[in-house]
């Protein structure tokens, strides 16, 4: 598996995700600076978490126009798998690869804790090691994770099975009480129409070792490594 991890000024989880990928696949991902005009030959592109450009203007807005993003968009449209985590999800939304936008958390507070996630759709390259309904414990660390899209877009995402994960209670109930940040319909992660692009706010890379308190994120990286080896 040849993975490229894109690094923007202000990215900060690129090593976490590279480490999780290396432990799952045995291969070291390549870091690619955002200013590069071309991507190396890759069968996975990762947009990591962080605070690209200090979240100026809107989260992910400036990174979405980085030179490398033209190439990321072209590869995504050709079918290369792309995963955007946290700031990476925000960048995917701002670049138009995924619909909607991530607003300020409803309670205005930065949230840094483990949340419970319900697996909604396991029919994808990324989620096939899970079963629908599985409840995962995965950390979040964001101030702007409140997913918003108009009702028509939300209906389409649900109708096409494009909701990957939802925030829930420890028992797996998708309710307001289990909604960490006010996201529309508790959405924590979505796919594009072809399901080769996944964006999610929680950090599965930080739930891949018992010493981190959870291994809920490990099947995601195992699934990627298995599919792309």
């Amino acid at each position: 598996m040849k993975a490229a991890v894109i690094v923007f000024p202000g990215s900060n989880r690129e090593h976490d995700v590279a480490d999780a990928l290396e432990r799952a696949s045995g291969k070291k991902p390549q870091f690619v600076w955002h200013g590069e005009g071309t991507l190396p030959d890759s069968d996975l592109i990762v947009l990591p978490g962080g605070f690209s450009y200090g979240d100026y203007l809107r989260t992910g807005a400036i990174a979405a126009h980085s030179p490398i993003m033209r190439e990321v968009k072209a590869r995504a449209e050709q079918g290369t798998p792309v995963i955007g985590i946290c700031n990476g999800f925000q960048i995917l939304c701002e670049s138009g690869l995924l619909p909607g936008v991530l607003l300020r958390n409803a309670a205005l507070k930065f949230i840094c804790r483990n949340v419970d996630l319900k697996v909604e759709n396991s029919d994808s390259l990324f989620t096939r090691r899970y079963n629908p309904g599985d409840v995962l414990s995965v950390p979040v660390a964001h101030g702007d994770g409140n997913y918003f899209a108009d009702a028509e877009t939300l209906d389409r995402l649900e109708g096409e099975g494009r909701v990957a994960f939802r925030y829930c209670t420890a028992e797996g109930a998708v309710t307001a009480a289990g909604n960490a940040n006010g996201s529309a319909r508790n959405i924590a992660g979505i796919f594009n129409a072809k399901k080769n692009v996944l964006g999610m706010m929680p950090h599965p890379e930080n739930a891949t070792d018992p010493r981190l308190g959870s291994t809920s994120g490990k099947p995601l990286f195992d699934a990627i490594a298995e599919a792309l080896s």
Partner: peptide, 9 residues
């Protein structure tokens, strides 16, 4: 349209 505003919101 391109950068300053996100017309979704």
């Amino acid at each position: 349209e391109k950068l300053l505003a996100n017309t979704v919101i």
